[in-house]
Design a protein around this nucleic acid. Structure first.
Lengths: 249, 249
DNA sequence: AACGGTATGATTTTCGAAAATATGGTCCGG
DNA sequence: CCGGACCATATTTTCGAAAATCATACCGTT
């Protein structure tokens, strides 16, 4: 299934197949609704759509080129993920942020991620080790290339997400992984929220390295301790530099 | 906003307002979509719609009297809850069941519910104690009245759900409570799955009573231990009596 | 001036038709 | 007799118009 693979890689100046030159409507999913769900999710996480922003259909319709119904489906899905707030008969809005919500998301992440790291360390095989090492390697490469504002770099965001995903990937529970992924997205939105006001990113590279080493050496107690302080210190940092955004809600 | 409050309380034999006598389309939510989401959820949990069953729009349209789009929105929401399986371009079906999924749901419930009980015991005030005691009282009353097949009694199901909800209600995290509620629903579906083949319900009343007492006396270690074995033994029971349904998927 | 009710405009929600896609069967060539 | 391409049908997915609902400003009354 590599149908439209070339369309984004090569400009269509000498395209032999005329219809494949058309920019595809669906980039991330087979259906338009799934595609828009994905795009909206990215924009909300990146705070391109700011927290609390009303999501009016007229505006979305023009922005995403889809009909009421399709948009409604996407918004319903995101509401279930906690990124959108559905107010019955009064439309949708980007889920608001609050200090309380940040604390809850952080707490829930610690509870679940600590457990999943522990399970992964116990169950992970060679492939798991390779995934952890290689995703961290890629992350460090990207950080070397452009050490300024990592959250502004889409590649860094993907690599960062994939490293944390790899760490827990051997836990054996698709159910808990899905919950973890939702919480990760909600936490990432808070990181973006404070990114513009944070003077300088602290040294996460060292933390990631230490977590990787603890995981690979199967030191579960150390790894879980490092993950917990990694999550909590990130959240503390967000709370510190986004105070003005969290208290006025 | 007590507009339609009388419609369910008093029969409309001498109703002064004619239009309020009409059976409302929306019983559980302000929108039809929310209403259908609720009704579909109940039917899936009760296994009135069996696991794996294809959910074709023609059939649903006639059954629920709603249009394609509205149904689609409801199914999308339920897919995010893990009760419906969305196969892109190939429609929806009731989420299939499996032994693996049962184990995952049980494990996740133990992880989260144990933590929430602990937090509730630490933080719960008088109102929490009253809620725990009164919901258990109501549950016991219903069990006395009809001790045969509790899962067939909608009132027992609601009371049972509310007792377990009350136990964790003081945990202080709406985020974790929402996750817990989803997992509870998924577990309840498995209980229904085995209910028809289980010869006789085991004595849950005693377990509930013991959990309540441990919680009220703020014995967190005992309460969490009781909750864990309560959840696990229920799941073991399901696995035992629904083997033929779990292995053929 | 303050209040309550009402008309008006804006916005969401719902609908069924139309387009897009998958499914199943048939025919043809090997 | 088997396998693959093609067509017809079944089903899902998408659309924009129409209905329902909400927000706001206006008006008359107290």
């Amino acid at each position: 299934m590599v149908v439209g693979a070339a369309s984004w890689a090569i400009d269509s100046t000498t395209d032999p197949m005329p219809e494949s030159a058309i920019r595809p409507r669906k980039e991330f999913g087979k259906t338009i609704a799934a595609d828009i769900t994905h795009r909206l999710r990215e924009e909300i996480i990146a705070c391109a759509l700011p927290p609390g922003e009303p999501l009016r259909f007229d505006v979305l319709r023009e922005r995403f080129g889809a009909s009421f119904t399709t948009l409604r489906e996407a918004l319903t899905a995101l509401a279930a993920e906690g990124l959108v707030d559905a107010q019955e008969q009064r439309g949708f809005r980007v889920a608001p942020v609050s200090r309380q919500d940040l604390v809850e998301v952080t707490d829930a992440r610690v509870l679940i991620e600590v457990e999943l790291i522990r399970r992964s360390i116990q169950r992970g095989d060679d492939d798991w080790e390779i995934a952890v090492i290689s995703t961290l390697h890629r992350l460090k490469r990207i950080e070397q290339r452009d050490p300024e504002h990592p959250l502004r770099d889409p590649e860094w965001k993907i690599a960062h997400r994939q490293f944390h995903q790899a760490l827990v990937s051997a836990c054996g529970s698709a159910t808990l992984l899905a919950i973890r992924a939702e919480l990760f997205d909600r936490a990432e939105r808070y990181r973006h929220l404070s990114a513009n006001f944070r003077p300088r990113p602290r040294d996460k590279a060292g933390e990631h390295q230490a977590i990787m080493q603890a995981a690979i050496s199967r030191n579960a107690d150390l790894a879980t301790q490092l993950i917990e302080s990694h999550i909590r210190s990130t959240a503390d940092n967000v709370a510190k530099y986004a105070t003005h955004l969290l208290d006025t809600e």
